[in-house]
Design a protein around this nucleic acid. Structure first.
Lengths: 372, 372
DNA sequence: GTGCGTTGTGCAATCGTTAGCATGGATTCT
DNA sequence: AGAATCCATGCTAACGATTGCACAACGCAC
């Protein structure tokens, strides 16, 4: 059964059929340089023990051969793939597209690459969760997508660090988000100081913590100021949902109609504005509208939305750093944090301003200072 | 130098410090099942030679241990990583966000995962190209981003199949795109038949083939119909660029002002419309505006854009299939194709229609048939 | 001249998986 | 009954990279 001593070594696979053929490997470089593979590895990784002339020779050879290290092989030894899973929410909201762009850039700056696991509405499939494990992702960045608790449990069981961005923390994983309550309060105060008394909120998807926090923060702030409770209009996470809510608002008799609307996301606010204007109402003349997120499209005409800008770059950077320290510290050792970052108010021309009865409509965006 | 015979086998690394600790492997399953590793591998891969009872025992054990195969290790043997690189253009254009969403979904359906290499404007960094090789990507999907010819050459040298979507083919790689010329011709005919005679084109980024083809197709079609050459306005790839062009158009004296504008991308068209309306002009009353791409935001009020919809899903699917057959056939063997798919006209309410002097503004989008 | 520290390289094991061949027992054919 | 066949499984060599340890060769001090 156990054949004694050295069996003859012959290649199990013909050299011609070998996959990835042609690419230089450490072994091929070693052979050409007449040194051992370990020497090549050390020379390319700037190990101090390699003599300068050998290193020079090897790096020149590697350059000439167009050598690229196989990260997959390295990952096996190191136990780290350098991959970070990315789970994106509904990209019909430009906020997530902007987030993605930041994520790619900042991850690359940290020496990581993103494995795009999911994008769009709907829950995450089981196959996706499996892929996350199969590719030995070092960690996973999750935006407002519906990460099932099953998926979260699987990550926890396999000690894959999880960081949510723009979403409340689960049992497992840290979270980075804008201080939604504080932000909503800033907007509530702005509207109240501008003299608005009949307020409304167009809510987001009831399932997302972000939407709930913004709604609650706004309403509590109004209540604290002694204002009348805002009317709530069911929204969603799209322009269409905002438009529908705007139509309902516009259809109200003038006496009951709110004179200021807080839409919990910019994309919603754009829909609201479009519906109001289509119904013949003036924004901000008849109704003030404010949003939250700070997407670039909403900043432009014809919206010039007053909104609370999320510190997107900082949020993503913080999220990645949390992930990386979590990876560093070994699996589940890292404490699970909830990080809140303050947004900044961007004054546009979609709402009445405290001082003037009507905002000048021609203010260039850049000239407007962002409040604290 | 060469110590004779079997050296004592001891672990090079302490078991505690072993990375990826805790996760079940084929070896650990084999030990627990009392069989060889190869048997486990075969049982899990449904090799016909494994007896039913052994397979049942092993699959049960794998299930219980929460075993997930390590694709990185598998890739080394198979020579295929199952990874497809994704290079996205400026995501400020929602078209690319929609494309990405399709790409994730369709790649997953084909058993592949996307490595997100680049997103946004600007050229691809060298480090990005390197990552593409390091992770042994099976192929790469490229959208309108600026893939340098250096990067393309590197892919060719390493026989990484390349497929461009919405962009002309390079020396190396296939390409899938909408038939931009034909699409632009459809739009030109539509405008001419509606009685427009003073036409204008808001161009895209001069560097992109897509923009050039659309501009040329439109102008040639007008010329063929004996129309006056359209005035060209430099655009770009953003709402802001469209807005700026719209302002220039609106500033013209009424006698010189075009009465119909073709913007080579929907996002541009939105900017044009916003600028024209802000200047007090009516769309489509005073000026008709049509776009091209078919992004969902442009379909909604207040734009209701008439546009040529790119068959996004088909384009991405075709691109992936081209990539996969290229991978199948072994590196550079696959012929390099250029695939053109026809778009479909979507009639909105942003332009005058051939029959009626003015389009009814309240047509529900769904009720409008898409022309051939 | 022996002993010792330094320095640069090589050897071999290892990560987790797959696949070619060997093997041993059961079955079937002549 | 002996031989040929077949089936299920085990052994082992890869894939490409990293790394602990062994070990030559060299210089230096005593």
């Amino acid at each position: 059964m156990d054949q004694a001593a050295a069996p003859p070594r012959r290649p199990a696979r013909s050299a011609a059929a070998r996959p990835g053929s042609g690419r230089a490997t450490i072994a091929s470089l070693a052979q050409r340089a007449g040194v051992a593979a370990s020497t090549v590895s050390r020379a390319l990784r700037d190990d101090a023990r390699i003599s300068p002339e050998v290193r020079a020779r090897i790096t020149a050879l590697a350059q000439e051969a167009g050598y690229t290290p196989n990260i997959l092989a390295r990952s096996m030894v190191l136990g780290r793939s350098g991959l970070i899973g990315l789970v994106l929410g509904p990209v019909e909201n430009p906020f997530y597209a902007e987030l993605m762009q930041q994520a790619v850039r900042l991850a690359a700056a940290r020496g990581c690459r993103l494995l795009l696991l999911h994008a769009g509405p709907g829950p995450i499939e089981d196959a996706t969760t499996e892929a996350l494990l199969q590719y030995r992702v070092d960690g996973c960045l999750v935006t407002s997508a519906e990460l099932s608790s099953k998926a979260a449990a699987i990550c926890a069981a396999n000690s894959v660090p999880l960081v949510m961005i723009n979403r409340v923390a689960r049992e497992h994983g840290s979270a980075v988000s804008c201080d939604n309550r504080a932000g909503a309060e800033v907007l509530a105060e702005l509207l109240l100081q501008a003299g608005h008394r009949r307020l409304a909120v167009v809510t987001g998807n009831a399932a997302t913590s972000t939407g709930r926090e913004r709604t609650e923060g706004f309403c509590q702030s109004v209540a604290a100021a002694g204002g009348e409770a805002p009317a709530l209009f069911t929204g969603g996470a799209s322009h269409a949902a905002g438009f529908a809510a705007g139509q309902r608002i516009a259809a109200l008799p003038a006496a009951e109609r709110p004179d200021a609307v807080f839409a919990v996301a910019d994309i919603l606010a754009m829909g609201v504005i479009d519906a109001l204007r289509e119904a013949g109402l003036k924004v901000p003349g008849d109704v003030s509208v404010v949003g939250m997120d700070g997407i670039s499209l909403a900043q432009r005409p014809p919206y010039r939305l007053t909104t609370l800008v999320q510190p997107l770059e900082a949020m993503v950077a913080r999220g990645l750093d949390l992930l990386l320290t979590g990876i560093e510290h070994g699996a589940g050792a890292a404490p699970q944090e909830r990080v809140l970052l303050r947004g900044t108010l961007r004054l546009g021309a979609s709402c009445r301003l405290p001082g003037s009865p009507l905002p000048p409509s021609g203010i260039p965006d850049a000239a407007l200072p962002a409040a604290e």
